[in-house]
Design a protein around this nucleic acid. Structure first.
Lengths: 119, 119
DNA sequence: TCAACATATCAACACTCGTTGAAACGTAGA
DNA sequence: TCTACGTTTCAACGAGTGTTGATATGTTGA
């Protein structure tokens, strides 16, 4: 995860519909959701949803696969993890031991199902 | 951390100069940096820097205090932690144990120095 | 092949955002 | 008080972004 990737990712998440899409996919887990289901879940019409899904794909935050008539989208948990690591890298001048565990309090969460790129 | 706060935060981080500012403050740790130092570090002229610092303050990602002629800014590590938790909340339908630890691999990092709001 | 369904693409519009330059504010030292 | 320094505010401009409606693409079953 470099700066330009992180910028794309944060910028993508800084939009109401896209943040809801990602959160819905994070909640859904590795199995993902069909585009149509996503649209009704987050309340975005099809053409607009497609636009935002493309943005999120370009940002590397989600992945998709076709299943029959539907396209299934899922969160890229490795990318989300990489994003967080980018933000916190080199914290406190590379001496995080001088600090209390703020990020460590996070619950472990969903990794991908095989097509993951570990950061 | 609610959705509107998260949106403000992600939107704030989705801009090159602001992301660099936050990363510089994360690196600096709890002591923070003066506005002038920040400006030269990230390469942003004073008036523009001030604009971005205000945005980051409104997003709740940084805090400031005056020290003589300088204004010292520092990252709000609790807010950053809360932002991450918001993104990952309810992951995998509330059953993160079905997943591998992606977020857990993150190194523990800097907490605040006392004015922290734990999430 | 055809019709029905799910999804994606495109152009146009209004709106928001980042940058710039000038000016103002607040603090410290003479 | 005056000057110098650090920082902030303001208005204006150009560029980028999200939404909308119409249209196109791809898939399934008859």
């Amino acid at each position: 995860m470099d700066e330009s990737q992180a910028l794309s990712a944060f910028s993508a998440l800084g939009q109401e519909h896209r943040l809801r899409i990602v959160r819905a996919l994070v909640t859904a887990g590795p199995n993902g959701l069909a585009a149509g289901v996503l649209g009704t879940t987050v309340g975005v019409p099809g053409n607009n949803l497609s636009f935002h899904l493309k943005e999120l794909s370009h940002a590397g935050l989600i992945r998709s696969r076709r299943e029959g008539k539907s396209v299934i989208y899922k969160a890229d948990f490795a990318a989300l993890s990489g994003l967080i690591q980018f933000l916190m890298r080199d914290c406190c001048q590379g001496h995080p031991e001088v600090c209390a565990p703020a990020v460590a309090s996070l619950a472990p969460c969903c990794p991908p199902t095989g097509d993951i790129i570990h950061v």
